[in-house]
Write a protein that binds this DNA or RNA. Sequence first.
DNA 1: TACCAATTATTAAGAGTTTATAAAGAAATC
DNA 2: GATTTCTTTATAAACTCTTAATAATTGGTA
Lengths: 236, 236
Amino acid sequence: MSEKETILLVEDDKEIARIVCDHLRKEGYRVTWASTGKEGWEDFKHDRYDLALVDLMLPEMDGFTLCKTIRLESDIPLLIVSARHEDENKIRGLDLGADDYLTKPFSLVELSARIASHLRRYRRYTKKDHNGSMVNFLHGLSIDFSKNVVYLNEEPLLLTSKEEDLLYLLAKNPFRTFTKSELYEHIWQQDDMDGNNTVTVHIKSLRTKLQDETRSAKFIQTVWGVGYRFIGEQAG
Amino acid sequence: MSEKETILLVEDDKEIARIVCDHLRKEGYRVTWASTGKEGWEDFKHDRYDLALVDLMLPEMDGFTLCKTIRLESDIPLLIVSARHEDENKIRGLDLGADDYLTKPFSLVELSARIASHLRRYRRYTKKDHNGSMVNFLHGLSIDFSKNVVYLNEEPLLLTSKEEDLLYLLAKNPFRTFTKSELYEHIWQQDDMDGNNTVTVHIKSLRTKLQDETRSAKFIQTVWGVGYRFIGEQAG
DNA sequence: TACCAATTATTAAGAGTTTATAAAGAAATC
DNA sequence: GATTTCTTTATAAACTCTTAATAATTGGTA
């Protein structure tokens, strides 16, 4: 592993953030620090991370929401930090998709150990799918999520950023139906899409590029009265 | 998830083993208990497990060796139990391939929470539940009840919500005859369907999509004067 | 066998709603 | 400033479900 592994630290307490950052960098990781949930999400979308360390108490977007949001798009190890030990089991039960749980104060040695062991496991799992990060779907659609390239019948497809956002979110959660509001909220990061049909229009142009006929959807199915979902059979 | 998840418990202390076994079984897991490392390894080779819970201090084959041995052949979550808290970080550093570490005494609530979260992640990685819920019927009909997809000859079938409701209700109770009133009451949530033939029409359109001829029904049979039933032989 | 009444199948049309589409205007990017 | 991308708007099309009218089938009976 020549490339440094990267960690996203989301923590609003500057003092703690500085200490943790310094420590992890000394251990050889590349660390990005975000002080709010929103900032964390921006960072996450902007770069590729191997692990995220998220404080539960965050301004702007709370840790719960951030965890679930990250988990929609990624399988990286997600470590939650909280101030109260009593919450541990409750939070474990919430299915935020978190992989581990730390309570403040935690020792840096313990933090390192846990991070290392999660990264070890993550490598173990991800090494498995050998063909890199290219995922082949049916009907000639392939997506390389890490390189950000979409192929249709071996030909690279040029998508705009919103089209890409939509396709990735849907394709990373095959068969899951998203309401238009969910799509809007996740991708546009705004609360209410009261009545606008922006999502519909982008779905339309995405479908056009995918040559996906509305009447007999190969990829993006309309779930009437609800929303859309990706038919995600994986080709051999 | 119809099938129970299975846990291999390797623990030499009978008393502890009994308590843990009972608890986990109450939680709905299938549990196999092995009292020595060697026995644990035999069990492991003999059956398929979703998770292993291994005590470090074991006769015959120690926990270290067992963990590394299991890890050579499998990626299932591996939880180590040890008597001494001080060893935790040391053991994490050893790269036994363990996924978590518990020190005695541990609470059953904590144990459950950790096991559940490891199994969740394991499912996430292996995407095991991806074809786990698919039921194959005859004549090329398959239904994935959890993901809500119906396939006819490998092709996904687009059903409306009422069609889906009907098919699911019938298919989940193969060979049971439902009167039209029963169907109406169950799906439309209304008491009397006095004379309307709504159900009939929806059955008709469902049959059309299933290419199910009335005269020689492959799937939905008319029981004259009574109602309908699903012919539900399951294909291999 | 032929006929009858009851039951089910089929087809078509209409209401109400949701989604698709196209095109123009606004914003962002180059 | 030109081009691409995004959003808004208006309209068309599609969808689901229901109702209704007619056709076909069934089981029994003469």
